[in-house]
Amino acid sequence: MSKLPTRAVEKPWGKDVLPAPFAAPAGQRIGEIWFEPPADVPSLLVKYIFTSEKLSVQVHPTDAQAKAAGETDNGKEECWLVIATEPGATLGVGFHEAIDHETMRAAALDGRIEDMLVWYPVQPGDFFYIPANTVHAIGAGVSLIEIQQNSDITYRLYDYGRPRELHLDAGIAVSRGEPLDPSLHRHIPDRGTVELASGKYFTAHRLEGAPDAALAADYAGPLLVIPRSGEVRLGDEVLKPGDCASAPGIDALTFDPEGLSIIVRPA
């Protein structure tokens, strides 16, 4: 139970200038920073994502769909908290109107699927929950925190002509051709304690200071903590923004009264 090891992942669509406290090594474009899932919370993965170009239009299956397809990994639900943006930054999530699979396939093949998505203008503090089966894409100029099921299954439907493999059969089969439920995206205030997600696979809150007694009771077991401002102490270890750590329970952590942090636990 301590600070998690990180892995910086170079991507052609990554950035060579990252938001504080991160810094890209000279000559590298960093697209993701992963925190290795700990043994006590193996089902969750936290990462930072930084984009200079649009990511592919993609979709993830449910656990049951992944198993039925013979995948060796589970499905994936995820959520995004935007932390920095450049002018014109957008996230594409869900469709403007309901479409069937035949229409979706044709649009993926000729590129129209990009314009069929709803591209939401975003700013720091915008939050999106992305259920499995939701067609989505991260636009350029976005930095965000992603909390997800620990799974590497991604079906690409469209990739702007880049020479990468697409997964049309598998992806279309699990895609919902519908708009995103409006309750799954919102802007969270700059301060205060806010519930981010409470789903089938994980629960997450953004805290200001320490949680109250009721919330602390809900986080009595193993969890992950992501400081956003100020420090969080885990025994003798000091956690700062840019870190992620596992803890046996909320009572193992000491929070800066004015600091902001994210806590997340398996459901």
Rank of each mutant, 00 (worst) to 15 (best):
K3G: 00
E10T: 03
G14Q: 04
D16R: 12
V17G: 09
P21F: 06
F22T: 12
A26Q: 14
G27H: 12
Q28N: 05
G31Y: 03
W34Y: 05
W34M: 01
F35L: 03
E36Q: 12
E36S: 12
A39G: 02
D40I: 09
D40A: 11
V41P: 02
V41F: 02
L45P: 04
L45W: 09
V46I: 10
K47D: 07
K47Y: 04
F50S: 05
S52M: 05
E53I: 02
Q58A: 10
H60M: 03
T62Q: 07
Q65M: 14
Q65L: 04
A69I: 04
C79N: 07
E86W: 09
E86T: 05
G88H: 06
G88M: 09
L91K: 08
E97K: 05
E102T: 11
L109H: 10
E114D: 10
M116E: 15
Y120R: 01
P124T: 14
P124S: 14
G125V: 04
F127T: 05
I130P: 00
G139Q: 03
V142C: 06
L144E: 08
E146P: 07
E146W: 04
Q149L: 10
N150Y: 11
S151M: 07
D159M: 13
R164I: 13
R164N: 00
A170Q: 15
A170M: 13
G171N: 11
I172C: 01
A173S: 10
V174F: 03
P182W: 12
P182F: 00
V194H: 15
A197V: 14
A197E: 14
A197I: 13
R206S: 08
L207P: 06
G209P: 02
G209T: 14
A220T: 11
L224I: 04
I226C: 07
P227L: 05
P227W: 13
P227K: 05
R228L: 15
E231P: 08
L234E: 01
D236V: 01
E237I: 10
E237W: 04
K240N: 13
C244M: 03
A245M: 07
A247I: 07
A247H: 00
I250V: 15
D251P: 08
A252N: 02
A252Q: 07
T254F: 12
D256F: 07
P257L: 02
I262Q: 03
I263E: 00
V264M: 06
